[in-house]
Design a protein around this nucleic acid. Sequence first.
DNA 1: CTACTCTGTTCGACATTTCCGAACGCTTAT
DNA 2: ATAAGCGTTCGGAAATGTCGAACAGAGTAG
Lengths: 252, 252
Amino acid sequence: MREDAATGGGLSTGDRLLSVIEVLGSQDGAGVTEVADQLEIAKSTAHAHLRTLYDRGYILKRDGTYHLGLRFLQLGQAAKQPWDEYPFIEEKVEELADESEIRAQFLAPEHDEAVYVYRSTGRHSVPTDSRVGVRIPMHSVAAGKAMLAQFPGDRVDALVDRHGLPAQTDETITDRAELDAALERVRERGYAINEGESWEGVRAVGAPVLTPDGDVFGGLSVSGSPHRVDPDDLADLVMGAANEIKLEFQYE
Amino acid sequence: MREDAATGGGLSTGDRLLSVIEVLGSQDGAGVTEVADQLEIAKSTAHAHLRTLYDRGYILKRDGTYHLGLRFLQLGQAAKQPWDEYPFIEEKVEELADESEIRAQFLAPEHDEAVYVYRSTGRHSVPTDSRVGVRIPMHSVAAGKAMLAQFPGDRVDALVDRHGLPAQTDETITDRAELDAALERVRERGYAINEGESWEGVRAVGAPVLTPDGDVFGGLSVSGSPHRVDPDDLADLVMGAANEIKLEFQYE
DNA sequence: CTACTCTGTTCGACATTTCCGAACGCTTAT
DNA sequence: ATAAGCGTTCGGAAATGTCGAACAGAGTAG
């Protein structure tokens, strides 16, 4: 029996393969020995896993170390497809960034976390999608709090039970009662504010993106340094964009 | 012993897990039975694999079927990082699309295939990265032929031995001698042309992107319907962009 | 030039794990 | 009401992953 790997009907070998993938993904490049050490498995075992991935074309050798291959890019695109089917989401993110002249992003809820799906820094900057795919606790970002505020109470309960309220900075909400109060305020105002709760010195304004049925589809936010982010100015912009997305769903 | 799965030191269980992932990625959504049928394994086995992926947060249930989760988006971004480190590559693709007013793309060679890494349809169109991550035989696309023409002969030999020259359309080069002649022409002119060899009615002009050392880093191309793609007009534009990327590497 | 240490790799044997098939609820059609 | 489809659970037999030791090669230090 293994410690935590496959508690239940899972397959421990497959579980370990995923761990190997994660090791390669969390740093750039790793050798057999490095993977074995990090996962505390025998070198020969690590080698077998890496060979499996290599033979299948999922990883490749570069400069003597293994790296994730572009097959994962293909899988990533497939995973993103449900959102790409509604191109106006990405368009609205671009618009938000252009109009606000700060960063704008769309996050989707998944497995109780918020994941960056689209991001734009406006027309005039480098297009690199840094942070796309990154997962972050919902309670620590504006778009996430906006989503949380729309969840039924028991879903919030379950989420907090499972993950707690980990702190990202000194400002992160870590107390459940405080979170509830914050979410209530979000519901009253219709938008969420993040005041350095995920990164020091970063303020953000976020709104939930709902489907016409009222389900939470994701969250929109704009973020930047506090002197460039005035909630009174931006809240209507963000909520407006979120609402426009909701309306677009109608005409599909 | 298994038929083809683990010929060598590979792990057949891990191999199967990857197959399950591929099934989910190649269509949108699949249930336990569907996965089991496609892979010709027992339902209970498919269930175990899906559970492993589910417990790890790699897949999720939506509308009663399993789908790839956004964790793959994260891995995809990690896989793309080596290219994102040189943001001018993506910039040049955008520029190419804007200036030519047709689609532009950057492809990277991996495991003897060409993979779409960046793609742009110009400033005025929907930004969706369709085809990013897609793999395609090198001999059937302009950027791929441009790269092949720079490979040493034995690497081309090995590639053809392993994969052959599969046809995508009636125009695809399927004969080795014909390929060699085409690659020779590419070297003479400095750019490659694709005349409906990957998709009927699509013409493309491609050039190799080299590092200062002369290694093949990838391939650039522009593509569209033949009446909008005049090689005499576009070749200099594409080769120029490829060369500018090469020069940018110098100043890193 | 040699010895040492670090790689990645292969091998065999044991023990663990995966796989299958059957059976169980359950929902949706017929 | 019956049937057929789904996802799920269970135990046992057989196949497979894991480990450790041993090997070859590259690189470095003495």
